[in-house]
Simulated scan of single mutants.
Amino acid sequence: MATGKLAVVFGGSGFVGRYVVRELAKRGWRVRVAVRRPHLAQFLRPMGSVGQIQLKQCNVRHRPSVADALHDADAVINLVGLLHQTGAQTFNAVQSAGAVAIAALAKEAGAETFVHISAIGADAESDSLYARTKGEAELAVKNAFPEAVIMRPSIVFGQEDSFFNKFANLARLVPALPLIGGGKTRFQPVYVDDVADAVCEALVRPDAKGRIFELGGPRIYTFRELMELMLRETGQKRLLAPVPFPVASLIGFFAQIVGRLPFLEPVLTADQVKLLKKDNLVDDSGAVGVLGDLGIDAQTVESVLPAYMVRYRKYGQFTKQAA
């Protein structure tokens, strides 16, 4: 147990962050959650004992607030990331420059361990701005904090995910779901609880320091197979329509423009189409670590998805499922 030690979590109110915070508290850490809007993160407090979880206002684009959040930190976890850009929240400012600031200031603050969440496909030379800034962040983090642990998850799924939930919601509104590039891109979805376990294990395992881990589940699926699985679990019958990459890029361009309007989020961006041109799989060459190296037995999509797709069925839990 890590009783008494302080872990500072940046981006702890997000999807993956809330699971990391809960797991840290369960393992006895004191947790300081650095977030832009603490009043929207109050739901984190009951995840630990009274006073165990503290909320701290912080913006990774503002270095003094980052330095303040890192005071007395024993461990630091950076989960800050974007799915798409909006206003001042850009990939360069948040995923690249923000990560650099956190890592450099964590080192100055004397933190013992640092875990940085990146993504499979991170590449400083990528034509995708998302993947490029993720890759730039990895290089900068390693330079500022050589012992840092880099974690690259594939699609992360779970109760509040933005993948299965997004498409299940979309299926409620439209008669067909798009298969970008024909739906042939392959993924290795990883359960959010497994990612949280991996982060916590990396903080206490000396052999994890300085390493890169790629996090994926036990099975590989094409995008089409994931859509078919989601539709089967929700009981929705929808056409799966192949969309060529050039057409998808055009759709993503216009969706991105619409997404700049207040309270609207683009379903697809041109940058995401670039990401979909490459498989999103764990490197099995042995060059990087995997969940098994951290003692984690990964959960399958089939074992978890039914529990939270049930709300999309016509009669919820009372809907009769086909045999």
Rank of each mutant, 00 (worst) to 15 (best):
Q299L: 08
L276R: 11
F10H: 09
P189T: 03
P244F: 02
T3H: 06
T222I: 00
I53Q: 08
P246W: 10
G235S: 03
G216W: 06
A101S: 07
P246E: 09
G17A: 08
A307F: 03
L170F: 08
R205A: 02
G11C: 00
L203I: 02
E136C: 00
D197E: 13
E138F: 04
D127R: 04
L177I: 07
K237I: 06
Q188V: 01
M47I: 00
R63K: 14
V192G: 12
L139N: 01
N59L: 07
Q52E: 15
N280E: 00
E265M: 03
Q57T: 14
L231E: 04
M151V: 03
P262T: 05
F245W: 03
G14D: 12
K142P: 00
A148L: 08
F10S: 12
K314N: 01
F254I: 03
A298P: 15
P153M: 06
V35L: 04
K237E: 13
V21R: 13
L250G: 08
L173F: 05
L70F: 07
P246S: 05
E125D: 15
E228A: 07
L105K: 05
K314Q: 14
G110D: 10
V115D: 01
A99W: 04
P266Q: 07
F164E: 05
F164V: 07
V192R: 03
G98E: 06
Q256W: 14
V60G: 13
A196S: 04
R313G: 03
Q159L: 11
D283C: 01
D283G: 04
D127H: 12
N92M: 08
S65I: 07
G217A: 09
L173K: 12
L24C: 10
R152F: 11
P38N: 07
F164R: 11
E125W: 09
D127I: 10
L239C: 10
A131I: 02
L6A: 11
L179N: 01
K277T: 12
V310S: 00
Q89D: 13
H116A: 02
N169W: 04
S303Y: 01
E112A: 13
S303K: 13
L275Q: 15
Y19G: 07
F164L: 04
Q236A: 14
L250E: 09
G289R: 03
R61K: 14
K184N: 05
V199Q: 06
P175T: 02
L179K: 01
Q299P: 00
N78T: 02
A97R: 15
V60P: 06
P242K: 02
T133A: 10
S13A: 14
R45T: 14
D207W: 01
